[in-house]
Amino acid sequence: MTSLISSRFTTRRSRVQDWLFGGIGAIASLVTLGALGWILADLVKMGLPHLSVEFFTADMKSAGREGGIGPMIVSTFLILVCFLFPAIPLGVGCAFWLSEYVQGGSRIARAVTGGVDLLASVPSIVFGLFGMSFFCQVLGLGFSILSGGLTLTCMVLPILVRTTLSAMTSLPPDLRPAAGALGLTRATTLWQILLPAALPGIMIGITLGVGRALAETAALLFTSGYSTRWPESIHDSGRAISVHIYDLAMNIPNGGGKASASALVLLLMILAINLVASLLADRCLKSQYIS
């Protein structure tokens, strides 16, 4: 206790300590933000001169050193469609079942949430390995946009389940007995009352999942392939933008300029997605205050 009595806020020692802590923190934050700024500045500096309307629509030329990324944008979009189509019913359905049809603490509920959490910890390259041999070889889909999308479904599923589940549990608890008192069946309650109420939260999960899928490379390297042609169907191989950046950076000498421009495009897409998610989150909060 003597140490407590003898120490005062204005002692010289505590002032020096205060300065020291603040200084260390400021330096750490400067280093971090400086690195982020450095990365962004470099990407803009190297990439901006290559950006034009043609860059978004044109074919790739000379192994990527010239031309645009039109086919890659279409492939990326198709991969996203193939990923969302199975992922939304699987993720949302799983969360609905967990929140509405089983007790939270029951053994089966714990097993399913545990499985989903473990899935979230599997590294993306392992999804790539699994996708390549299961979807491409065993199911015979080959290197295709469909295989890539399905691999991403496995990878992003936990995000969808987690966000939908938290949206469902944050709904007002009296919605369910009220619907029951009106004589609605559970399925009708779910479809007509709970789903619309939880929709903004579910949309946040979907946008976060899309952002994660856009950023992914390792899971796509050997599932959706390297082809740079315009994809004609989801059974064609197609190169995602992220894979394109990887290929330009690693295998094409002097591909840096176009790679920066592609990275800039990818970054802008992810920023836009994040903006949508945070706008949705704001609206979600507001609607909760009103109700």
């Binding site: 019913p89 609905f96 079942w97 399913v112 499985g115 989903v116 899935l119 392992v126 599923l157």
Partner: peptide, 20 residues
């Protein structure tokens, strides 16, 4: 039907990691 379809989806989602 809804209960069992949702249950099936949940088991698929939770069991995927075991399959992998």
């Amino acid at each position: 039907l809804v209960r069992h379809v949702l249950g099936l989806l949940a088991v698929v989602a939770g069991g995927l990691v075991l399959v992998i």
